[in-house]
Each structure stands twice: as C-alpha cells, then as structure tokens.
Amino acid sequence: MSDSLATVLLAMLAGSLRVSTPFLFVSIGECLTEKSGRINLGNEGVLVLGAMVAYATSYETGSPWIGVLAAAFAGLLLGALHGAVCSLARVNDVAMGIAIMLAGTGIAFFFGKPYIQPSAPLLPGIPFGWWSGSSQVQNALLVCPLFLLGIAAAIGLHWCFNATRVGLRIRIVGDSQDAALALGLPIDRIRFLATACGSALAGIGGAFLSLYYPGSWNEGLSSGQGLMAVALVVFARWNPIYCIYASLLFGAAGALGPSLQTVGITWGYYLFYAAPYIVTLVVLIITARGGRSLAGMPGQLSIGR
C-alpha cells in the first residue's frame, strides 16, 4: 500500500512538472493582461495557434527554438488583434476573447493539416535526475527548459509589477482608470501592449505542448488548458508567483487519474480525471470573499465588477 502511495505521489510530482508548463505560461500571460484591466479568454486560441506554429516552424527550420520564437510571435499578433479591437469603445473583451479563441483555433487547424503527419525536432530536456538510479525519478526530473523559463518569467513579472515604473503603470491602469487619466498615462497603449505580450507568453505555452510534452501536433492537443489558465489566475490572486503554485497543483491533480489506475484503483476514473477542476472549484470557493472584491484583483477588470 505504501508502495502504491509512493508511486502515486511520484507520478503526481512528475505530472506536475510535465503538465504544468502550458498552464504556467498562459496564466502568467493572462496575469499580465488582467493586471492592465483587460481579460483575454482568447488565450486558448493563442495556445493552439502557438502549438501549431511552433511545430511547423521547427519542422521547416529544423530548430525547435526558432519554433518557440515563432509561437511567441504568433501569440503576439493574435494578442495584438485582441488588444486593438478591445481598445475600441463599447467592445466587450470577454466576448472578443471567445472570438479570438475561435479564430486562433480555426487558423491553427486550417494551416496545421499538413503538419500532423511529419515529425519535427523537439526541445531537449535537462536531466536533473542524473543522480538517481531509478528511471522513474530520472524521467520525473527530466525538465523542459521552457519550464525553467516560465518560472523565471513569473519571478521577473512579479518583480516588474512591484519594483519597476512599467509595472506600476500597468497596475495603475488596471486598478483605476481615473487615477491613470489623472496621471496622464496612455491607457489604451498600455493595455494593448500588456495584452499582446501576455498572448506572446501564452504562445510559448503552446510551443511546449507541441515541442515537448506531449510533443506532437494534432487537433486534439489542447483540451481547454488555455481557458483553465484564466481560472488559475483568479485562484492565484493575480500574483505571478502564485501562478507557479497554481499550475503545479493543477498539473499534479491531473496526474492523479492515470496513476491511480496503474496501482489498481480503477473505479470512477472519469471523476478522478476531473480532479483538477474540482480542486480549482474548491479553491475558488474557499478563497472567495462574499460580497467583497478579491484581494489583488485589478479594479477595472470586467469580470470583477
């Protein structure tokens, strides 16, 4: 029994390292966008497009890193579209996000057809488990450089929000339109840039999916990771560091379903597969403050009114 428990725990650790990276990138990207007072549900579409562009570019150029850059650029473009349209008066950013999700997915599927068959070069993993004799441990600790990049980006973003002028401006624009106007900040431009850069990060998350894990391009690749990342931002309290924890937790919960089956617990696997969502909901409820706004929530965010 304790053996099974160890197996499940190790699988959850490995799973959280494997599966969390796309959530991490999309959630810190979304965090950046939301801090400026705008929401972008379109990051699901950005994720899918990023995955396709990364894979196609890696196949065409032979370099997965160029693929990652291309995915970020594709995300930047789609985010710029979202940012530009949403800066028009009266345009609803939640709805526009759904439109971007549809457009991004459609474009990715359309142009991605020829890249389903071929195998593109993938990103290498960094073997942090070299010290262990166990192949499970070795594999669990084979870490994608993008994961480290994501953690660095989260820390950088946290520092940016709290210690730099740029970060302060983004927070002011997101928290209070009146204050931003009084200070003469270019509200639309700041939000536009925050949205575009946030989507570029989400695009890198897509590159992880197609170039590292599971490491191939096909149309079922994203099963709503981009949407769920938006939920993770809420539960991470708009704090990039908490986004890391939220993504790891979500990844670990996702590994529960398959690993329980390998140790013989096979009842109700659909419910175990839903574990990450149940965890998210529970955390949302526990941390909710009835009648009051959430700590850390940007005041101008449309979902927070």
């Binding site: 659909y270 419910l271 839903a274 149940i278 998210t280 909901l281 949302l284 909710a288 403050r289 706004s293």
Partner: peptide, 27 residues
Amino acid sequence: WLRAKLNVNETIASLVLAYIGLALFNH
C-alpha cells in the same frame, strides 16, 4: 449562487463546473 452569495466569478465557476458536469455525465 456562487456568484450571488460568495462572489465567486461566474464565468470561471461555470467553466469549471462544465468540466465537472461532463465528468459526472460520462461516469
């Protein structure tokens, strides 16, 4: 209810509940 009583964002709650609902359905 979550929105009205606990101020949980309804967009996110309904999304997460959609996944949970589908899992229950399949189960």
